[in-house]
Simulated scan of single mutants.
Amino acid sequence: MHSDSSKYPKEIISAIAQEIDMGMICFLNTETLEFDSVLGQTYDAYWDEDAENNFNKEVYDKVDGWKHSIRIEPPQSWQSFKIMEDFIETCISDDDPVKKRLWDAISRRKPFQSFKYVIDNSQYRQHWFDFKQSRLEKFVLEQLYNSPE
């Protein structure tokens, strides 16, 4: 990863990480550090196509006017799954029964939903949010520094 992490303020990285966590696609103007987002694929099933197109068109029109911008996609499902695995592996002690429940949850048919149910009903809920946010911020930084402008 690039050593100059001050190029992008933590508040911006944090905000973009929160957006992609919700399935949004973000665009960052690397000159002004303005960013905006559009609905990602996760919204396709829920969204009125005309409303989405109008919303996205407004953002795309603005982004098209930026000389230097980077598109930041949400993590793919295998990447999100890896974050859950890493959390279970590194953040919960082996003797805590929640660890086995989480491993069982992610081996089920709907692993994200099952994981969320177990984590939301455990003492690790906030720890999970903090862990995921930190990993998503790293993910954003990697995309920013590995992207040709």
Rank of each mutant, 00 (worst) to 15 (best):
E149A: 02
I83Y: 07
W103I: 12
D4G: 07
F81V: 02
F115Y: 08
E31D: 15
V98C: 12
M84E: 05
E49N: 02
G65P: 04
N53K: 07
M22A: 13
S5C: 05
Q123V: 13
W78D: 11
L33Q: 08
A45C: 08
R101N: 11
D64H: 06
Q123F: 06
E137C: 06
N54F: 10
I16S: 03
K99C: 09
D64I: 01
F55Y: 15
K116N: 11
R71C: 13
L28C: 07
L102Y: 08
C91N: 11
F131N: 00
T90D: 12
A15H: 09
F55T: 00
Q126E: 07
T32Y: 09
I119E: 12
K100I: 12
Y60L: 07
E58D: 13
Q126V: 05
P148E: 13
W78F: 15
M22Y: 05
Q79L: 12
Q41A: 06
M24A: 11
S107A: 06
I83H: 05
D48C: 03
W78S: 09
C91M: 15
A51D: 14
N29W: 07
S114V: 04
Y117G: 00
N121P: 03
K138I: 02
I88K: 00
W47L: 12
V59L: 03
E137W: 04
L144I: 14
E19C: 09
E52F: 05
Q18A: 08
E149T: 06
K7W: 13
G65L: 08
K10V: 09
H2F: 14
I88Y: 03
S3T: 09
V38I: 15
I70D: 09
Y124G: 04
D130K: 12
E142A: 13
E73W: 06
R71G: 06
Y145E: 15
P9V: 05
V38W: 02
S93T: 14
A17E: 00
L33I: 12
Y117V: 11
H127M: 14
A15C: 02
I16V: 09
R109C: 08
F55V: 01
V59A: 03
E52L: 13
W47T: 11
V118D: 04
R71K: 15
L136T: 08
R125Y: 15
N121V: 07
V59Y: 01
P9Y: 04
L39A: 03
A15M: 07
D64Y: 03
K62H: 02
Y145P: 05
I106C: 05
S107L: 06
T32W: 06
M22S: 10
K100G: 09
A45T: 11
I13P: 04
I83D: 03
Q76W: 10
K10Q: 14
Y43C: 02
Y145V: 04
F112L: 07
D44P: 00
I70R: 14
P97T: 10
K82S: 14
A105R: 06
D96E: 08
P74K: 00
D94F: 09
F55P: 01
F112S: 05
S114D: 08
W47V: 14
K99D: 03
I83K: 02
S69F: 15
E31Q: 13
P75N: 07
H68I: 06
S37Q: 02
A105G: 11
W128D: 02
E58Q: 09
M84N: 06
V63I: 08
R135L: 08
P9R: 07
D44R: 10
